[in-house]
């Protein structure tokens, strides 16, 4: 029972690994930007005065958070093509990620907005700020600062979950690994390499989020304490 490791057999595929990792990162970047936008809009919708909007946003969040991601992928992918909409694989994969992470983001952002004391909003109203200005300056900014660790943690999880989009043949890191191991017959080594690459991506992402947080939250940078 001795296994002879042969990582050399994987060397010819280094470009494929790199491309896969870059695709994973690109998908993640798109999903973070659009998922955050949807999450914020949805969190605002759940606080809106319109019961219809509240219920619509609530339904979306609960639906996504209570079904498996892989089912969501198939639902969106085959659902779209059966109504005649053909998206490129990459776009379809990003779409499933956005729909998925948007719901989790909405819930995190909502929790953050719930921590804003009503007195804050009244003070802003008394100063003459408009509703959109209050949402941006007095509710969203401190709410996002408060939930930033939870939010970025969710984005890292999403990056890892993006490996599931290999199921619809998105050419990301996991799909690359599946191909490489079938050509090289070195499955064990391939998945070790891929695990290390995912780990590296996760660390990279965490560092990037940390740096970005220092940039956009000056209070945190200067005081170093949670808000």
């Amino acid at each position: 029972m001795r296994y002879q490791f042969d990582f050399g057999a994987l060397l010819p595929y280094w470009r494929d690994f790199l491309d896969g990792a870059l695709t994973t990162l690109t998908m993640t970047a798109f999903a973070v930007v659009f998922g955050l936008a949807i999450g914020i809009l949805c969190a605002i919708g759940r606080r809106s005065a319109s019961p219809l909007l509240q219920r619509l946003c609530g339904f979306y969040v609960e639906l996504i958070r209570n079904t498996p991601y892989i089912i969501q992928i198939f639902f969106i992918f085959f659902g779209l093509s059966s109504i005649g909409l053909r998206l490129p694989i990459f776009a379809a994969a990003v779409l499933t990620l956005v729909v998925n992470v948007g719901a989790y983001t909405a819930e995190i952002v909502r929790a953050g907005m719930d921590t804003i004391h009503p007195g804050q909003i009244e003070a802003a109203q008394a100063l003459g700020l408009s509703q959109p200005q209050i949402y941006w300056d007095v509710i969203l900014r401190p709410a996002l600062e408060r939930v930033y660790p939870a939010l970025t943690g969710q984005f890292v999880l999403m990056m890892l979950a993006s490996s599931i989009t290999s199921q619809i043949s998105a050419e990301e890191l996991t799909a690359v690994a599946n191909n490489v191991q079938s050509f090289s017959f070195r499955a064990f080594e391939t998945y070790i390499v891929v695990a290390v690459l995912y780990l590296a991506l996760a660390v990279l992402l965490k560092l990037a989020f940390y740096g970005f947080g220092q940039l956009i939250f000056p209070r945190r940078r200067r005081l170093g304490t949670p808000l």
Binding site: G119, Q120, A123, R141, P142, F217, R219
Partner: peptide, 8 residues
């Protein structure tokens, strides 16, 4: 309760 904005 003052209501200063804590992040500013």
């Amino acid at each position: 309760s003052y209501n200063l904005f804590p992040h500013l």
